[in-house]
Design a binder for these strands. Structure first.
Lengths: 195, 195
DNA sequence: GGAAAAAATTAAACTACTTTAATATCGGCA
DNA sequence: TGCCGATATTAAAGTAGTTTAATTTTTTCC
């Protein structure tokens, strides 16, 4: 029996109901992967071969600009999916780095296996539609906030919205997600502590 | 026969193949709506009753902050869908304004009708999954750009990526999408023209 | 077609955030 | 346990983008 399958089935069960046969098909198409802290799951230029469900640990997807600064487009921890979606769907070279911030356990679906899954268990069309709806809404909120809120407000909202994540991340990671420098985040924290 | 049905069927046909019966079911669940320039489709506090497909015209979804500044989270024109997705899915009060930048023709699906559509024509699970994938990727690129690129670069990329949209929008609208003031956009344009 | 409103331009003062650099602290691992 | 590289702090100077306000240009609409 594949490790951590219970976790992914629990998660899927929150959105669609699968019978035993459907569960069996799904599980047969999964594979596991472990990656250590600081190891890469994906680099720009690679083809993103899998959609990745995290059963344990924490990853980030990011770019590095011409000055060497990292910009984090998403964090992902237990029960989240992560990939370079465009690269995965089109099987063309990725633009993002994905690496592990902690030792991490994944369950993976390759593109051919996901395509087969959609054919054999159409309920997964619904499942991923719902996952994408939620991701779309979360991203739209982030865009709205980046447009309208100053850095201090964005920081406060981040720690309020993702308290568990905040515990596990360095300030450097958080600042690369918020779109400010680590220096400025440190200044904000001092200012806020003084209140 | 409902106006503009051919346009929406063409668009759907790019992603899934429907037979005549499925097309019939779909069409029977649609309704049309016209809105004039400057009219509102949705305001914060309203419940977003419909997903809206644009057959003609141009809309924007935006918020207004405490200082009265508008922040545009999305534009939408012909062949795009627009709604306040969270409000629509949960049928709770909206957070966005949606209004028309030009006289606009819509085809609408209410929440009950969309739910019925998913039941009766499961291919629409796939269709909206694909639409959401594309929207997710576009939003992720926008987030990445907001994090890493200065305003001038974001403006250049906007006019390159959405040349048709740029023709139809005032600089005020574009600046509210880019996250800068109209004054600063005007300065950028002068500087760029001087090159 | 003309008046009024909205949008765009320009300039100057201002501020949120960056950059650089030096010092202090933490965390991972031999 | 202790060392070393990475992370965090602090301060000071610099810059991208804002604010305000006055003027011009364009659009709206009766």
């Amino acid at each position: 029996m594949l490790k951590n399958v219970d976790k992914i089935l629990d998660n899927i069960g929150k959105h669609v109901q699968l019978n035993e046969k459907e569960k069996g098909i799904f599980i047969s198409l999964l594979q596991t992967k472990s990656i250590k802290r600081k190891e890469f799951l994906l680099k720009p230029g690679d083809i993103c071969r899998t959609e990745n469900f995290i059963t344990q640990g924490c990853l980030r997807a990011y770019t590095v600009d011409e000055n060497g600064f990292e910009h984090i487009v998403m964090f992902a921890m237990e029960d989240w999916w992560i990939s370079d979606l465009y690269s995965f769907l089109t099987q063309t070279p990725a633009t993002f780095f994905i690496d592990a911030l902690e030792d991490t356990e994944l369950l993976q679906l390759t593109k051919p296996n996901l395509d087969e899954l959609y054919q054999r268990v159409p309920k997964f069309e619904r499942f991923f539609r719902i996952i994408l709806q939620n991701a779309f809404i979360a991203q739209q909120n982030r865009i709205r906030q980046n447009l309208s809120d100053p850095a201090e407000q964005r920081y406060l909202d981040f720690i309020k919205k993702y308290p568990k994540l905040e515990q596990r991340l360095s300030q450097k990671q958080i600042s690369a997600y918020l779109g400010i420098t680590p220096v400025f985040l440190s200044m904000l924290r001092r200012k806020m502590a003084g209140k």
